[in-house]
């Protein structure tokens, strides 16, 4: 829910109103994107809110963009990557693996847990590349813009990420 204390005049599209419209439409999309990369609800929430905050602070220029949603995506992706770096530098314990079991394929819940664990083995850039390219359907060139790197780097992240998933899941 968005509340506005502004006094928009009838018939005008105030900056607040246009921002609200964009935020409502994009917040859920950005949250799914951030959650896919970070795999942490709290961090994803932070990423979205800080993305929206940044958008608001730059709304004068963002509102005039041809594709403000793309700008939001780029900011969100970059925020996810930089935020996680900060967390890692705090020395949070890494997950160890007891590799004594054979994944029980076919059980949906078990498959999801296995996939989640395999996915968490990927670097954040690998996750971002797979999420943007595979799930959201962006081209490699578009992914490169969102991630702030070259297309060749995106291809490398995709290839290595998928290879890691295959290895972790024992499917390749």
């Amino acid at each position: 829910m968005i509340a506005s204390a502004g006094s928009a005049q009838a018939g005008e599209a105030s900056p607040e109103r246009t921002f609200e419209a964009i935020a409502v439409v994009d917040a859920r999309r950005l949250y799914s994107l951030a959650l896919s990369i970070l795999r942490d609800e709290g961090e994803a929430e932070d990423a979205v809110q800080e993305t929206l905050l940044k958008a608001w602070r730059s709304w004068g220029s963002v509102a005039g963009m041809e594709r403000p949603a793309a700008w939001l995506t780029r900011v969100c992706v970059n925020h996810c990557i930089s935020r996680r770096r900060m967390l890692r530098s705090r020395g949070w314990p890494q997950l160890a693996v007891i590799d004594n079991t054979t994944p029980a394929h076919g059980d949906p819940a078990s498959d999801l847990i296995d996939m989640d664990r395999a996915y968490r083995r990927l670097s954040l850039r690998q996750r971002a590349a797979i999420t943007l390219n595979y799930r959201h359907g962006y081209s490699v060139a578009e992914c490169a813009v969102f991630m702030g790197c070259r297309p060749g780097t995106v291809r490398a992240h995709l290839a290595r990420g998928l290879a890691t998933l295959r290895k972790e899941l024992g499917s390749g």
Binding site: M1, I2, A3, S4, A5, G6, S7, S14, E16, F19, E20, A23, V24, A27, R28, Y31, S32, L35, S36, E41, E45, V48, Q49, L52, W56, L112
Partner: peptide, 18 residues
């Protein structure tokens, strides 16, 4: 599964003052 997750209630609780 990820996209089925409901965003937190406060995600779009935004108070915009002119």
């Amino acid at each position: 599964h990820i996209e089925a997750s409901r965003p937190p209630a406060g995600l779009t609780d935004i108070d915009v003052a002119g």
